[in-house]
Amino acid sequence: MSMTAYQWRRYTIRTAIYIALILLTFVFLTPVYLVVVTSLKDPAVINLATAWNTPETPYWQSFSEVLEAFGPRLQNSFALVIGATMLSSLLGSLNGYVFAKWRIPGERYLFPLMLFGMFIPYQAILIPLFDFMRSVNLYGGVIGLILIHTVYGLPITTLIFRNFYVDIPDEMLEAAAIDGADFFGIYQHVVFPLSIPGFVVVVIWQFTQIWNEFLFGVTMTNTDSQPITVGLAQLAGGEAVKWNLPMAGAIVAALPPLLVYIVLGRYFIRGLLAGSVKG
């Protein structure tokens, strides 16, 4: 049994493709290996030359030290993420419903003006925001941070829900209207029940974005209200770091969004692509 030239070529190309994919997999996962290995080492044995070696016995203590160092920041992040994700998704759903299914004055301009808000560099509004938050006594607290993330989350949540609702046939809404449903009735009986996948996409997206956010976290908080990303930056900052702690901290800070991504990756990708407006 000998292979024809065509089969040989095909075989070589297929093999090359798999080799490339496997090599790239190693490239992408190399940092993960180094992080895990370092986080499990006794700080006394960590040095540059042996960075890639596995620890002889895992040193779990780094994780308890990190949890202690993070202190209230882990809870702050959870409170922040839950509050801001819920508020921005609910408002976004309502906005998306209005933009997709109701004709309102100035819609042509209002929608793009709203979307622009998700592209601006937040540095551009940071100082007026700081001023404003101080003047309404919300500066430096988790509540204030929830408000900030809710407002700046509105453009993306509105966009995702609008694009989702546009695909609901108008006839379904008409039918409900003929049965006597008003604005809220249509939302409650037709739009909302069809929204579950939309909510999954939006909630996952907002959860990961807000959990990972740093700029507002570092400028709009005080030591009691900082989120976890700020805790990690402090843990890793400075010159004389013991690298087991930042690495364990990176794992703790990365775990919640990573779990969401691994379990619900399909929805995560939809949120990701929605950010380019049409996808």
């Binding site: 790239l24 990690l232 930042p246 901290g249 800070a253 969004p257 991504y261």
Partner: peptide, 15 residues
């Protein structure tokens, strides 16, 4: 290939 997108830039930077 997509998992780093779920990480914070702070995590990536630290690593």
């Amino acid at each position: 290939f997509l998992f780093p997108m779920a990480l914070s830039f702070v995590v990536t930077g630290t690593i």
